[in-house]
Every structure is written in structure tokens, then in C-alpha cells.
């Protein structure tokens, strides 16, 4: 470890940036965020549309609704319900995608089947299969999970297959040379070598899953029941609790940022650390 530090200290000093770029990243973000909230507040204060609390919520109202929603548990329950569906759906989707890709990497017919299915099913928007899912699974969370899984299998499978296909042939030869073959070659060499693609596939799948689950819940929201964030938004709309709708959207945004950070940590601990991707 000490030798790495030596190398680092031997580097010339990083050139100093001027002005805005000189500020630390977190400070730049805080300032920008404050500016956005400021513009939002200005719109509420000076515009007729923005000033109508039935149509538009102020930052303060949104914060209050957010705080109340999380304190009384309604927003927390809705968030958890959405997260639960999302985790199950993406989990099933990722597992099926991994199996598909394994099959495709071991046989030509497997690859042909996967490419054909991907070409047909990947362009479908996630919610497009929902009516069918409702028909097959009824008004249950199974239908939503089905829609999420369908929305996530294909981006993951595409990325994994690309990753497997573009693995450096020397490293595969090295793997075979030390005695790996078949499934073991896939799990021990191809899979880690394709990890950058796997992570980017998972990120895309996660984003697709989010869109699908919230949209699907909006459909379910009409019939009520124990719902997630989509249901929460829909109910808030029915009673014109505009600030609650804003609070739910804020929750989604915060979760989105949180998962982006989580993926960032995952990348830094793996592919960035291993020099397979620049930070």
C-alpha cells in the first residue's frame, strides 16, 4: 500500500480551477439545489397559477406534507410497498436475464433465441403489458411484479450479452489455460469481466422498473387497496391534496438520488477499483 501512496505523491499538483469549478462538489450541488428551491418559491409567490394551493404546492407546503407523511407512516408505507414490488420485480428480472445470458453464452441457439426475444420485447414500454398482466394475475401485486420483471429482463440481458461478447479474448484464453471450462468459465471469468456491462444494465433496469411500478400503481390506485407511491399520488389527486402529490414525487426523487449514490458506491468498490472503468 505504501508504494501506491508514493506513486500518488510523486504526481504533479492538480492544476487549480478557477471560480465555480474550484468549489467542492457538495457545495456546488447545495447552491444549485437552493437556487432551484428559490425559483420554485418565486413562482409560487409571483405567479397566479403557482399561487393557487389547489394546483401547485409551495416548497414549505411540500416539506410539511413530506414531514407529516413520513411521521404518520402513510408515505413510509407507500414507499416501502413500491420498493418491495420493485425489489422483487427487478430481482426476478435479473435472475431470469442471468439465466438467459448463461444459456446464450453456452450455445448458438440460446443466443439466437435471446436476441430475437430481446428485439421483440425490449421496445415495449413496461406498462404496455399491464392490461395483459391484469388479465392473467388479477388485480394483485403479482401483475405489477410481472410488469416490472418484463421491463427489467431485456435491458439486463442486452447489456450482459454485449458484455460477454466483448470480453477480451486473451482473458478467456487465460481462463481456459488454467483449466476452467463450461459454467465455471462463465461464472469465474466471463461474468466478472462483463461486470461493467452488468452494472450498467442493472442501472437501466432499475430506472425502467421505477417508471413501470409507479405507472402500474397509478392504474391500480383507482381501485384502492394497500398501495404504493403511485396509489398515494392518485389518492392525493382525488382529494386535491396537491402538497401530498408533491411530497410523494419528492420521495421518488430522493430515492432515485439515493440509489444513484448506491450504484456509485458499488462501482467504486468494484469496477473502478479494478481499473475496469474510470471513476
Amino acid at each position: 500500500m505504501s508504494s501506491i501512496t508514493e506513486t500518488a505523491s510523486a504526481l504533479p499538483a492538480r492544476p487549480r480551477a478557477a471560480g465555480w469549478a474550484r468549489l467542492p462538489l457538495w457545495l456546488r450541488r447545495v447552491i444549485l439545489l437552493a437556487a432551484i428551491v428559490g425559483l420554485w418559491q418565486a413562482y409560487v409567490a409571483w405567479s397566479e397559477f403557482g399561487g393557487n394551493p389547489l394546483l401547485f404546492a409551495s416548497p414549505a407546503d411540500t416539506a410539511t406534507a413530506f414531514w407529516d407523511g413520513w411521521r404518520d407512516g402513510s408515505l413510509a408505507r407507500a414507499t416501502w410497498e413500491t420498493m418491495r414490488l420493485l425489489l422483487i420485480g427487478v430481482g426476478i428480472g435479473a435472475a431470469i436475464a442471468a439465466l438467459f445470458t448463461l444459456f446464450a453464452s453456452l450455445s448458438q441457439i440460446g443466443e439466437d433465441i435471446l436476441l430475437l426475444l430481446t428485439a421483440i420485447l425490449n421496445p415495449l414500454p413496461g406498462v404496455a403489458v399491464l392490461p395483459l398482466a391484469l388479465l392473467w394475475f388479477g388485480l394483485s401485486s403479482k401483475a405489477i411484479i410481472f410488469a416490472i420483471a418484463n421491463a427489467t429482463i431485456w435491458p439486463i440481458a442486452i447489456n450482459l450479452t454485449t458484455g460477454f461478447k466483448t470480453v477480451n479474448p486473451t482473458i478467456v484464453a487465460a481462463g481456459r489455460n488454467i483449466g476452467l471450462k463450461g459454467v465455471r468459465l462463465v461464472t469465474d471469468v466471463l461474468a466478472p469481466a462483463a461486470l461493467p456491462n452488468a452494472i450498467s444494465g442493472l442501472k437501466t433496469a432499475w430506472a425502467f422498473g421505477w417508471r413501470t411500478v409507479v405507472a402500474a400503481e397509478l392504474v391500480f390506485g383507482v381501485v384502492g387497496g394497500e398501495g404504493g407511491l403511485g396509489t398515494y399520488i392518485n389518492n392525493a389527486k382525488l382529494y386535491l391534496f396537491t402538497s401530498k402529490m408533491f411530497a410523494a414525487l419528492l420521495s421518488i426523487a430522493i430515492l432515485g438520488v439515493a440509489f444513484e449514490l448506491l450504484f456509485g458506491v458499488l462501482e467504486r468498490r468494484t469496477i473502478v477499483r479494478w481499473g475496469m472503468q474510470r471513476s
Binding site: T170, I171, A173, A174, N177, G179, L195, T270
Partner: peptide, 19 residues
């Protein structure tokens, strides 16, 4: 068949497992 009884050192630097 490829096997460790005939261990190969390739020309390419990226023959190591980066992870």
C-alpha cells in the same frame, strides 16, 4: 485441450484477471 500442464504466458498485458 487447454490445460494447466501447458501454462501459457501471452504477449498481451491484459491476460491477468483485473478483479
Amino acid at each position: 485441450e487447454p490445460g494447466p500442464d501447458r501454462a501459457v504466458v501471452f504477449q498481451e498485458f491484459d491476460q491477468l484477471f483485473p478483479w
